[in-house]
Design a binder for these strands. Structure first.
Ligand SMILES: NC(=O)c1ccc[n+]([C@@H]2O[C@H](COP(=O)([O-])OP(=O)(O)OC[C@H]3O[C@@H](n4cnc5c(N)ncnc54)[C@H](O)[C@@H]3O)[C@@H](O)[C@H]2O)c1
Ligand SMILES: NC(=O)c1ccc[n+]([C@@H]2O[C@H](COP(=O)([O-])OP(=O)(O)OC[C@H]3O[C@@H](n4cnc5c(N)ncnc54)[C@H](O)[C@@H]3O)[C@@H](O)[C@H]2O)c1
Lengths: 216, 216
DNA sequence: CAAGCATTGTGAACTGCGTAACGACATTAA
DNA sequence: TTAATGTCGTTACGCAGTTCACAATGCTTG
């Protein structure tokens, strides 16, 4: 199986974003060690990650910024754009919608759902909000295969079940629970609470280290 | 050095949250395989993660829910509470502040900063917003050692520099860039854009697998 | 009371990821 | 032309993290 690791895909996403900024600054070429420094990685890792992409740089010029960016896009993106549904238009859901509105042409939040009738019907950022009852119909009509879950934790599992039942194959879950899904469904987790507690723990460790280092 | 891995700390945070819910339901005891199922892990991994915590379960009753939760808290949390600063009160920053307000007594966002004067001075959720100019003073006064960065990407590095200059040892960074920080500072990254693209990629892969599996 | 049983804690084996190392190659300079 | 330089692509290695496997433990039951 020539399967690409999740870590590599994550870094490719980051490399592409950096290349995009470089392209805006009219930078033509870049070496692996330069890209690595900007991405917080090593030169060897960058070269390794780029292997499956199939783009080759020149030993003297490095990588062509524009070409590499396009190659990564060709490798990662859907050929014809991808529509995403967002479920839960609370504080976090609205922040996400606002952020992604009009940003990526190839990966767009096209519909949103909530079960709060006061939100239903309104359009945020040109994106209509439907009631959760209409999940099945709207997802089928728009041929959506991926969804973002931004509902409270105690509703997340049932929302996921519904989505999968409607033919969803991939989820980005912000609710702080582990979802039980069938084997064919991919789930990406963002657990802000856990990240917060991790950061708090390692912050304390960093302080301890600094103190003991000072005294030593 | 008997250093604990980041992965383990992340899962301990999740275990504790699950235990909290179990405690509310008056569940007294739980086995490693039950906790593993709820956390999306394996029984062996749960037991391994619990080793550094130092709490021992009984081979017949399993782990005491309340006791294990307390042991994890004693292991992970600061003995006397921890204050966190939030920089950037945009859409994401406000969502985070709203979510954490009054939720965790031991880990609290106590001050916020923005450079938009229209936000400064107001209090969101009983938490005053200061102008970034006052960073040094306010952080010193409140003895803050950790901060959340929720400003646009092109300001994130300079904000981080300022924070570190004020004595911050740990960061939770939502800006989609890699921060350059001195070795004594810990950084935890949440890159929503990358997670989104990862999910999109593996969603497509899941669809392909399902199709080829169907035809095979 | 002893045998049986399910679970715990942990050493040992395994897996996968990141790093190091090295041959290949294009350019530059002598 | 030829030697020197610096980077690329790829293979090989080492380590961290996960899973396996089993002795130790203490309840249950006949
Ligand atoms: N905001 C944060 O910083 C933060 C931090 C950690 C975790 N989270 C998690 O992210 C998720 C969303 O957080 P939030 O702050 O936006 O919460 P929120 O309460 O502001 O929003 C939740 C939204 O989901 C809607 N909803 C509830 N049940 C629903 C259902 N069954 N179907 C459709 N919509 C439903 C509600 O009407 C509401 O609009 C939660 O699971 C939360 O635990 C958020
Ligand atoms: N909202 C999302 O879903 C999302 C997704 C991906 C990435 N992000 C990242 O999260 C960060 C915040 O996103 P957002 O949607 O809240 O953006 P936003 O534009 O809504 O908020 C940014 C806030 O930061 C403040 N700010 C700007 N420069 C500042 C400075 N130098 N010092 C202090 N405050 C400053 C602004 O006044 C504003 O209030 C950004 O880096 C963004 O790239 C957000």
């Amino acid at each position: 199986m020539n399967s690409i690791s999740e870590k590599t895909i994550g870094r490719l996403s980051l490399y592409r974003r950096i290349l995009g900024e470089l392209a805006q600054k009219q930078t033509q070429h870049i070496y692996s060690h330069e890209l690595a420094a900007m991405a917080g990685a090593t030169a060897a890792q960058v070269r390794r990650d780029l292997m499956p992409v199939g783009y080759s740089g020149s030993p003297t010029k490095g990588y062509g910024v524009r070409d590499l960016m396009d190659s990564i896009s060709k490798f990662m993106d859907a050929p014809c754009g991808q529509s995403v549904a967002l479920v839960g238009l609370g504080n976090l859901g609205r922040a996400i919608l606002t952020y992604f509105a009009g940003r990526r042409p190839n990966l767009t939040i096209t519909v949103t759902f909530d079960n709060d009738r006061s939100r239903v019907g309104k359009a945020f950022h040109g994106c209509r909000c439907y009631h959760t009852e209409e999940l099945q119909k709207v997802i089928a009509q728009n041929n959506i295969r991926m969804a973002i879950i931004a509902v409270p934790a105690d509703h997340a599992q049932s929302v996921a079940d519904n989505l999968i039942n409607c033919g969803i194959y991939g989820l980005l879950n912000f609710a702080p629970i582990s979802l039980r899904v069938p084997g064919h469904v991919y789930v990406e987790y963002i657990d802000i609470t856990t990240s917060m507690e991790k950061a708090a723990y390692f912050t304390r460790r960093a302080i301890e280290r600094a103190k003991s280092g000072k005294s030593a």
